[in-house]
Simulated scan of single mutants.
Amino acid sequence: MATIGLDRLYYAKITEESNGDETYETPVPLAKAISAELSVELAEATLYADDGAAEIIKEFRNGTLSLGIDDIGLKAAGDLTGATIDDNHVLISTSEDGGDPVAVGFRAKKANGKYRYFWLYRVKFGIPATNLATKGDTITFSTPTIEGTVLRRNMLDGQGKHPWKAEVNEGDEGVNQAVITGWFSEVYEPTFANGESGE
């Protein structure tokens, strides 16, 4: 079903354990969302045998998340890009900056009035793009865009795989309402029938 809106943009800082597994801090609002574009790059391999394709493998390699936002704010800019805030509360960006990966969550409104919810488990952001324009005869809004590389998690889920995205549609059959209501209170951890999760 088509989506007609976007809101509730959150991020959660990641702490890596000694074995490389991730734990997430409590999610906090990032900014007001204007747009989100997610593109995915796959690693592909084809095995040829008996003069034809015998096996084809397509696996997630990485992705790109481009967010149009109203204003990133000092704290979020520091958390996402590695910039620092000086003693006068001025954001200082240096050539040595490089933020740590974070989890990013948001939701998109569907045409039926319900929402599709997302968590991207590891996103490493670059420096936000700044677009400025002089005031003319008409009002033009200039807003920042921030782009990040989407990576898979280090931690295995209950099926022994490395997830990179969690996505759920509100109102789908079998979706527990508690999953929807708690979506932004913590980063979603996969749970499977055998009782194991990524925790």
Score class of each variant (00 low, 15 high):
L74Q: 12
D87E: 15
S95V: 13
D87P: 00
P101A: 10
G113Y: 08
A76Q: 06
L74H: 10
R116V: 10
Y115I: 05
A103T: 01
T84N: 10
I69W: 01
H89S: 10
Y115P: 03
G105E: 03
G99N: 05
D79A: 14
V102I: 06
L80F: 08
A103E: 00
G99P: 04
T94E: 15
G68I: 05
G78L: 04
D71R: 09
A108Y: 05
T81H: 09
D79I: 00
A111R: 12
R116N: 11
D71H: 12
L91Q: 07
D87Q: 02
L67R: 03
G98P: 06
L67W: 03
G68A: 07
A103D: 00
K75S: 15
D70V: 13
N112D: 15
D70W: 11
K75Y: 09
N88A: 12
G82P: 05
S66E: 15
A111V: 12
K110N: 12
K114C: 07
T94V: 13
T81C: 08
T84E: 15
P101R: 05
T81L: 09
A83T: 03
A83H: 02
S66L: 07
S66M: 08
A76C: 11
L80A: 06
A76G: 09
H89L: 11
S95A: 13
D70I: 13
T81S: 14
G105W: 02
T64K: 14
N88D: 15
Y115S: 11
G82F: 05
A83C: 14
A108W: 02
L65M: 10
K114T: 12
V102E: 00
K110R: 15
F106E: 01
L67T: 04
I72M: 11
R116C: 15
G105S: 07
A76K: 04
D79P: 03
I85K: 05
K114F: 14
I92K: 08
G78A: 14
A111K: 08
I72F: 07
K114H: 12
V104L: 06
L91S: 02
L65V: 06
S66H: 03
D79Y: 01
R116H: 12
G99A: 07
K110E: 13
L65K: 04
A76R: 03
S66F: 03
D87H: 00
A111D: 11
P101D: 05
E96R: 13
V102D: 01
K109D: 13
G78W: 02
A103W: 00
L65E: 03
V90Q: 14
L74C: 07
